[in-house]
C-alpha cells in the first residue's frame, strides 16, 4: 500500500473519531452522520460475512459440491443440506399473523439443542468452582511464607505446606462465601442473630465486590479513550502526518 493510501485511511479514521466525540459537546449532525455511517458499514459487512463466512462455506458449498481447482480437491455435493432451507425459512414466518406458528419449529429445535447442552455446561462451569471453594484453613507451617528468593534453598517455602498467612487468606475467602450465601436466604424468615449479622455482612461484601467491578469498568472505558487518543495523536498526527517514530 502507498503512503497516500495509508494517510487517507488514517485521515478518515481520525475525522470519524473526532466526529463521534463531538457528542460530548452536544447532539449534532456531524455526530449523527458518522453514527449512521458506522451502522451502515457494520450492517453491510455483517451481510456480506453472513454469505461468505457462513452460508456459502458451511451450507451452499456442501450442498452443491466443488470441482478440483487451484489446489483444492473435488468435493461431492450433499443434497440433503437443502432440508435446512425450509427449516431456516420458517423462522421468518414470525412476521405472518396467519403462519407464525411455523416459526416455533426452528425456535423449538434451537431451544432443544441449547437445553440439551445446559446440564453439561452448568457442570463444567460451576462444579470446579465449588471444588475450589473447599479450602483448608488449618495451617501446617509457620505464619509467614519464607522468601522464595532466599540464598539457601532449604529456607524457601516447602511445596504442599500451608502457611498461616495463606490460611488466613483462605479463612477470609470462606467467610466471604458464607456471608454472601446467607444474604440470599430468601425462602424463610431469618430470626437468628448470627445469620442476620452474616447476611448484613454479606450485603457489605457484595457492595465491595460491585465497587471493584465498577472500578474495572471505568478503567476499561478509559483504556478505550486512551486508545483513541493514541490513534489521533501518535498514529495519525505524529507518524502519519509528520513521519516521526
Amino acid at each position: 500500500m502507498t503512503y497516500n493510501h495509508d494517510l487517507a485511511v488514517l485521515s478518515v479514521g481520525a475525522i470519524a473519531t473526532i466526529g463521534l466525540y463531538t457528542i460530548l459537546y452536544r447532539e449534532n449532525r456531524f455526530y449523527r452522520f458518522f453514527e449512521h455511517l458506522f451502522l451502515g458499514l457494520a450492517s453491510g459487512w455483517a451481510l456480506v460475512a453472513l454469505w461468505t463466512e457462513t452460508l456459502k462455506s458451511l451450507w451452499w458449498d456442501k450442498l452443491v459440491g466443488a470441482s478440483a481447482s487451484d489446489g483444492n480437491s473435488a468435493a461431492m455435493g450433499y443434497w440433503v443440506y437443502i432440508m435446512l432451507l425450509p427449516i431456516g425459512a420458517m423462522g421468518y414466518m414470525v412476521f405472518s399473523k396467519k403462519h407464525n406458528w411455523m416459526s416455533r419449529i426452528p425456535i423449538g429445535i434451537i431451544l432443544g439443542l441449547y437445553s440439551g447442552q445446559q446440564f453439561n455446561a452448568w457442570t463444567n462451569r460451576y462444579i470446579p468452582q465449588m471444588a475450589g471453594t473447599m479450602k483448608s484453613i488449618i495451617p501446617t507451617a509457620g505464619f509467614f511464607k519464607p522468601d522464595p528468593n532466599a540464598l539457601n534453598p532449604a529456607l524457601g517455602p516447602v511445596k504442599g505446606d500451608l502457611y498461616g498467612s495463606e490460611a488466613l487468606n483462605n479463612l477470609i475467602f470462606i467467610f466471604t462465601v458464607l456471608c454472601v450465601l446467607s444474604y440470599f436466604l430468601f425462602s424463610f424468615d431469618v430470626k437468628n442473630k448470627l445469620v442476620k449479622s452474616a447476611s448484613l455482612m454479606g450485603r457489605w461484601l457484595l457492595m465491595i465486590g460491585f465497587g471493584a467491578i465498577f472500578g474495572t469498568t471505568v478503567m476499561m472505558r478509559f483504556s478505550l479513550l486512551i486508545d483513541r487518543m493514541f490513534f489521533i495523536w501518535i498514529e495519525f498526527v505524529k507518524q502519519g502526518l509528520f513521519h516521526l517514530k
Binding site: A131, G132, G209, A212, T216, M219, M220
Partner: peptide, 24 residues
C-alpha cells in the same frame, strides 16, 4: 477486557483457566 477481569478471576482461581491476562 478490564471489565471482564473480576468474573474471569474466579475461573482462574478455581483452576479452570491455566492463565489469565486482563486489560491494560
Amino acid at each position: 477486557t478490564g471489565v471482564m477481569v473480576p468474573e474471569n478471576t474466579t475461573y482462574y482461581a478455581s483452576g479452570q483457566l491455566k492463565g489469565l491476562c486482563g486489560g491494560v
